[in-house]
Amino acid sequence: MQTFSTDHILHTLEQELPFLFQKDLTYEIYSPGIIFQDPINRFQGQQAYRLIFWALRFHRRLFFTHLTFNVHHIRPSDANILVATWTLEGSLRLPWHPKIHFTGSSTYTIHQGLITTHTDIWDTKPQVILAQLFKPALKQEK
C-alpha cells in the first residue's frame, strides 16, 4: 500500500475539497479502515467513505439548484493532523426556495502516511440546519 507525506495529503485536500459536490475524491490518500464522523453519522471503511461522498453528489443534483462548499483554509494543527474550515451554502429545489447555510471544520488524522480519521464539526446544531429547510427564501425586489 502506498503512503504519502503530509504535504502531499494537504495539497490533495486543497485541490479536491472545494469540488467535493462536483467530482469524486482521490481515495488513495485514505486508509482502508478510515473512520468518518460528523454530528449525525459515523462510518468506518473506505467503501463506506466512498459511498458518503457519492451520496453527497447525488443529493446535490437531486435536491439543490445550487450548492457550494467554500474551503477557507486547510492547515496543520500538528505533525499528524490537518484542519480544514469551510462554509456550506445552497438553495434547495423546493417551491419556497429555502436556503441552507452553515460553517464547520474537518479534522483529518494522518497515521503512517494515510488519513485514518475524518471528523466534521458543525458550528450549527443539526436541528437548526434542518429548520432552514422550512424557511422560505426572501424574495428579491424587482
Rank of each mutant, 00 (worst) to 15 (best):
F4A: 05
S5N: 00
D7Q: 09
L17R: 09
F19N: 12
L20K: 12
F21Y: 11
F21W: 00
F21C: 04
Q22E: 14
T26D: 13
T26F: 00
T26K: 05
Y27E: 02
Y27V: 03
E28H: 13
P32W: 00
I34L: 14
I34W: 02
I34G: 07
I35M: 14
Q37F: 07
Q37V: 05
I40A: 13
N41Y: 07
F43Y: 11
F43T: 10
Q44P: 02
G45Q: 08
G45K: 08
Q47K: 15
A48L: 11
A48K: 03
Y49H: 09
Y49F: 15
R50I: 12
R50H: 04
L51H: 13
I52L: 10
I52A: 06
W54A: 09
W54I: 05
A55F: 02
A55R: 03
H59P: 00
L62H: 00
T65V: 01
L67Y: 00
L67H: 00
F69E: 05
V71D: 12
H73R: 12
R75L: 10
R75F: 14
S77G: 02
V83S: 13
V83L: 10
A84H: 01
W86G: 04
G90D: 02
S91T: 14
L92Y: 11
L94G: 06
W96E: 08
H97E: 12
H97M: 14
H97L: 15
P98V: 11
P98H: 13
K99Q: 13
K99C: 08
I100W: 12
F102I: 10
F102R: 08
T103E: 14
G104T: 11
S105D: 08
T109F: 05
I110G: 06
I110K: 07
I110P: 04
